[in-house]
Design a protein around this nucleic acid. Structure first.
Lengths: 328, 328
DNA sequence: AACCGAGGCTAACGCGAGTTAGTTTCTCAT
DNA sequence: ATGAGAAACTAACTCGCGTTAGCCTCGGTT
């Protein structure tokens, strides 16, 4: 900056004023131009760190997530990143393996970088305990919620998603809709089931306990669960699988019996794992978890909080859209 | 820091010396302790930005990658992140959509943050053109190489991977090994084919052009290609698919004919996309692309370069391990 | 008694910016 | 001719920290 000043024949102050578009201070437009061209000529690149020091703000948010090769994490990162960039903010990403100690350490490192806020994202929707240090700056949870309710959170609307999937099958004319749920207790299992039952009720269909089975989130367990359903005296004509992996197993079970999808049995999944849903044959209609949107929403919330526009510990739910493919 | 100094009754200089473990300067150990406890008591957290300014080094590397949402990208990030953390370095991640303009802009932003080096990672192995600005700092390419050979690169050993996959099938006793390759021209297709042919030759088997077909990286094309192979007068007893998605399609083709995997036809994939390989039934034996390792290696290379230990534009190849599952 | 060196510590400068209080020059109305 | 005010700049301080040169004290030598 000193060089630019010398090159333009002005003070360093002037350079700073010009480069920051400070029009409240009067500078001859001829001077402004001289500075601008000097900066361009010298290839001047401002030092973001020095600016952060002087301005007492870093323009950074920290994103803490269990990267564990989970395909989900990336979408959150991408959503957050894009939104942050639009706000001229940067994202410092810290990956943890959900080891509480390492997690605290990672957050402390982010705090040393003077992040203005934290986004704590989980790879699967659940209650979490956020390290105490996180309270030093505004913190927003994404795809998870604080067990003690101390932080604002952004979570997917599992119930609406389950409702949407089930309704889609009912609209297609199915009356016996099987449901392969996830292990009980987790928010996804609870919410999706509520949605399933609500949709049935709205359609005036009494729920049949026989049609509800539980898998364990794997393709194998989906296979077993689907067999169980197809073995019923009065088997379902459609199956709502609480995740795509189980749907993948269900596909095998259906095909092994020589039945066709969707003609004989319609299938709908949940999660929209592209690699599965997009490449199964036929491609899988499924409900998407809005990771990207949640990431963006997290940044928005953080921005609102740091700007003092929002506060408190409210929870925002994000809609889960249905992606129509060929299995219904 | 000033507060800590006051609280401990020493100068700020002393605090700095203590906190940085500068034992070359003599300080009474009693003083050191007083400073340490004062810092702990006040919950002092150093300002990384200020330190960076004073020391003229940021401890940051920039990681530029396209569409972070590709399942591959995460592993590179994770590998790089973990290795960087171990070196007390931080990673600033910038995602781009492989739009040259946006890419340059992203790199410029990283340079403003004074990153000490850049890692430019691609989601699929290929030649790329890196924006010129990248030359301002040490830059390493990961999973891609500079068309003009100006940058050092870390790439997977496609040939060895293809060789390994084919050999595995030959060892299992197969003599007619089909090969569903990717579209010609890309490094993955070329390398994997070379490995395939080399393995055949070593086993004294003459390559049969009939056994080599081309797909287009999708499950559907894998299905079609597999049908083509199975329709041969003398069909293969094993199929090496150049990626897992095509293997997914091949599975369907094989199963539809009532044949079993691996008893009637063995299948081996490439890429190790967990969601596919791990959940197919039977699970897919496949060759893994060492993304995590390449990310780590990228950081290592960068560290070596900035330390002046390495230089030049050499290309490092990383081995692709075979993951045994149940399809062979 | 004068000198010396080691131990223990700090004043002061610099890193690259933003910001404020002030100075100088010019113009115009009185 | 005299202010007064606007226009056009700049000196100097600050942010939080690392670093160097130097200061002071004290014990031991010659």
């Amino acid at each position: 900056m000193k060089d630019v000043a010398r090159h333009a024949g002005v003070s360093r102050t002037a350079v700073s004023l010009v480069l920051n578009d400070r029009f409240d201070v009067t500078l001859a437009s001829e001077t402004r131009e001289r500075v601008m061209s000097a900066a361009a000529e010298l290839g001047y690149r401002p030092n973001a760190g020095a600016r952060a020091l002087a301005q007492q703000r870093s323009d950074w948010y920290g994103l803490v997530t269990e990267i564990v090769t989970a395909p989900f994490a990336v979408d959150v990162i991408k959503g957050a990143q894009d939104r942050a960039m639009a706000d001229e903010k940067y994202l410092l990403i810290a990956s943890t393996e959900s080891d509480p100690v390492a997690e605290s350490a990672a957050i402390e490192r982010l705090l040393e970088q003077r992040v203005e806020g934290l986004i704590y994202a989980a790879t699967w929707h659940r209650g979490v305990t956020v390290p105490d240090v996180a309270r030093e700056v505004p913190t927003v949870l994404v795809n998870c919620f604080d067990i003690e309710g101390r932080f604002p959170a952004v979570v997917p609307d599992e119930r609406a998603g389950g409702h949407r999937a089930t309704s889609r099958l009912l609209e297609a004319g199915h009356r016996r809709v099987g449901f392969i749920n996830l292990d009980r207790g987790i928010p996804a299992a609870i919410g999706r089931r509520e949605g399933y039952l609500a949709a049935l009720e709205e359609a005036g269909i009494a729920p049949d306990a026989e049609l509800e089975v539980t898998g364990h989130a794997t393709a194998d367990s989906g296979f077993t669960a689907a067999e169980e359903l197809l073995d019923l005296a009065e088997p379902p004509t459609a199956i709502f699988c609480a995740n795509d992996r189980m749907a993948m197993g269900a596909y095998d079970a259906i095909k092994e019996r020589g039945m066709r999808i969707p003609e004989d049995v319609a299938v709908i999944g949940f999660d929209n794992q592209e690699l599965i849903a997009g490449y199964l044959r036929p491609s899988l209609t499924t409900v998407a978890l809005p990771f990207e949107q949640m990431g963006a929403m997290g940044v928005d919330l953080l921005a609102a909080i740091t700007a003092g526009e929002s506060t408190g510990t409210n929870t925002v739910t994000v809609d889960c859209p249905l992606l129509e493919r060929s299995s219904v």
